[in-house]
Each structure stands twice: as C-alpha cells, then as structure tokens.
Amino acid sequence: MSSRIFLAVDPLPLTDSVKPMADIVDIAVNAPGFKTLVAAVQAANLVETLKSPGPFTVFAPNDDAFAKLPPGTIQTLVQNPPQLARILAFHVVPGKWTQTDLQQVDTLTSVEGSPIRIDTSDGFEVKNATVIAADIEADNGIIHVLDSVILMG
C-alpha cells in the first residue's frame, strides 16, 4: 500500500548524489501540495528551527489534510501564531526515524511534549492519520506525508 512516490524535488531527477540535499523546509516549499503547511510554518515563524541541523522527523500533512479540517480552524490558528506553532510542533519528533525504525517502537514524544501513537501492524499509521509517502530524506531529517492533521490528546 505504501507506494513510494518520488517527490519531484526539482526538474533534474538527481539521486542522493554528492549534490548537497535540500533541508526539510526547501523540500516542502518545492513539493506540490504543501502550500498550507508552508504558509503555516511561515506564519508560526518556525522556518529557522526547521532549517536547524536537527535532525528531525516531520509528519507533514498535505493540503487536502488541512482541507479536511472544519472551516475556520486554520483561520483561528493562523491568527494566533503560538497556538499554530504548538500544533506544528506536535507534528515534529526529534531524531531521524525512518519507517523501519518506527516499526520497533509504538509511541514517540513530539517536540510539543504530547505522545504520538505509531501503528505499523498493517500499513503505516501515525495516530489517526495514515502515511501516504514515507522516508523522504532531507539533510537535516526525514519527512513522512500524512493524509490528515493529527491533534494532541
């Protein structure tokens, strides 16, 4: 089920050769379908933290994940950066966890502090979201794309 879709990082299909890889933010910026996430990160001015060496594992919800949220949720969050930063911090876990690493563990603690439940028994699920694209390498961490926004609790 976890078909690995290569992200069109940039027109040249470069494999992970010597060219310096982009960091998490650049991947998100260039990739299609992450506009809301990028806007959110900028609004919550988390860009520097995400550019820092890290390493980080980011569970990145794509645009239709944000679209699934009821109307007005994003608007309120964008108006209040600290709260938005907290939600986004919940999607980031210190350390670099590939899909295989995640199979050995069932919960992680996010940067925000609340636990995230990982279920890899059948398919790869993070809390109540399923991962649609895993193990997207970045020089300061790794990204897994989620099909819906996860919330604390």
């Binding site: 109307p71 007005g72 949720t73 309120t76 709260q83 938005l84």
Partner: peptide, 10 residues
Amino acid sequence: NGIFAIAGRP
C-alpha cells in the same frame, strides 16, 4: 464545527 473553528483560540 464551532469547537474546531475556535480550538486554537489562545
């Protein structure tokens, strides 16, 4: 919807 819309209120 109201709960979600205002969930982020500080």
